[in-house]
């Protein structure tokens, strides 16, 4: 059981995600995709994420249904089912990655594979500020609705959305300015920076990466003749 509950090194987790995503993307047949879905679901359960994944379906399903409906109208039901399942697989893989690896760890992994620290830090910071700006947007919306500005999604209300956009834009600009100041005041960009988190790829990480690579190779081997034949 410790095999599944132990935290993977973020780099190993990202590698598994990359291989899984690549396998889903290159798959063109529904039966292969269904087998892949089985493996993904198994991994979700093994990682102890099944309950959370079920809750996340509230977000995943509406997008999937939209893609399914559009594909059903423009292509066929079979194609729509295939595209819907592929989307669920891709979103589930990303869900599992974000559940197991923090934004900070992703940034640190990116730095270790050669991205400059400044760039990886800015990337992770911008990801962290998305929920903060989301909170700001909610506050702005509450304030504007409370003064009687109609922000319901109606054609005639389009000009009213300036009441959301302008305060948010100004606050985002001010926030980035203050953020830069705060980072500078705590030594961002100093050359002697150390990194306290030690990342080590252990035997377990190698084992998981090897298993994912084998599975990936099997799926490619299964799918490739079909792809070449179609070509």
């Amino acid at each position: 059981m410790s095999f599944f509950t132990r935290r993977l090194d973020p780099r190993a987790a990202i590698s598994v995600w990359v291989l899984g995503t690549a396998a889903v993307i290159i798959t063109a047949r529904t039966n292969v995709l269904m087998v892949e879905s089985g493996f993904i679901l198994l991994a979700v359960c093994a990682l102890g994420l099944f309950g959370k994944w079920i809750s996340s379906l509230r977000l995943i399903l509406p997008v999937t249904l939209f893609v399914f409906a559009v594909s059903a109208v423009f292509f066929s039901m079979a194609e729509a089912a295939f595209l819907g399942l592929r989307l669920i697989c891709l979103l589930t893989l990303s869900f599992a990655l974000f559940q197991k690896v923090s934004v900070e760890e992703m940034g640190e992994s990116a730095r270790r594979i050669g991205l400059p620290y400044g760039v990886s830090f800015i990337l992770t910071s911008s990801m962290r500020y998305v929920p903060l700006l989301g909170e700001r947007l909610t506050s702005i919306m509450d304030a504007q609705i409370s003064r009687g500005i109609d922000l319901r999604p109606r054609l005639r209300n389009i000009p009213n959305f300036l009441a959301l956009v302008i305060p948010l834009l100004i606050q985002a600009i001010l926030l980035s300015d203050h953020l830069a100041m705060a980072m500078e005041a705590r030594g961002f960009g100093r050359k002697e920076r150390t990194f306290r988190k030690v990342m080590r790829i252990g035997a377990m990480d190698w084992a998981v990466m090897a298993l994912s690579s084998v599975l990936f190779a099997l799926f490619v081997w299964w799918e490739l003749p079909h792809k070449l034949g179609a070509g």
Partner: peptide
């Protein structure tokens, strides 16, 4: 601007090269 309180406190200390 960090992902956890711990990382927040560590940021300046890491900048100092400790």
């Amino acid at each position: 601007f960090n992902g956890s309180v711990e990382a927040e406190i560590a940021f300046g200390l890491e900048s100092m090269g400790l």
